[in-house]
Design a protein around this nucleic acid. Structure first.
Length: 100
DNA sequence: AGACTGACATAAA
DNA sequence: GTTTATGCCAGTC
């Protein structure tokens, strides 16, 4: 696993503003990750100090084990979820490539 | 090396 | 709406 890529992923996630969300696929694409699975891996291992709750699946539903807490955190930021699902059309944030 | 796994995505049934 | 099937690719065993 490339350390630089690891940092870039963290950087992109950290750039998501409060009250907005993004997807694994988008973060992966912007950070240059070869697959979205890497994003999930990084967040699991090293996401404790990042706004990981702002990263969801492409359809707006979080992973099963996190569903409860994640939606709760988002709700606290003003992101309203219709039961299990966040309205991506409204809240989706498209991150920018880190320039350096 | 080979098989299995997973905080994913997309398409098809 | 749902469940399955594929593709994907870095870890782990």
């Amino acid at each position: 696993m490339d350390e630089e890529l690891h940092e870039r992923i963290r950087h992109v996630v950290a750039s998501i503003p409060p009250g907005r969300v993004s997807t694994y696929g988008d973060v992966a694409a912007v950070a240059g990750a070869s697959t979205p699975r890497l994003v999930g891996r990084v967040l699991r291992e090293d996401g404790h100090d990042l706004p990981w709750h702002r990263v969801l699946r492409a359809d707006g539903t979080p992973a099963p084990h996190l569903r409860r807490e994640q939606l709760e955190r988002l709700r606290a930021e003003g992101v309203l979820a219709d039961r299990q699902r966040v309205d991506m059309r409204t809240y989706r944030w498209l991150p920018a490539e880190p320039e350096s």
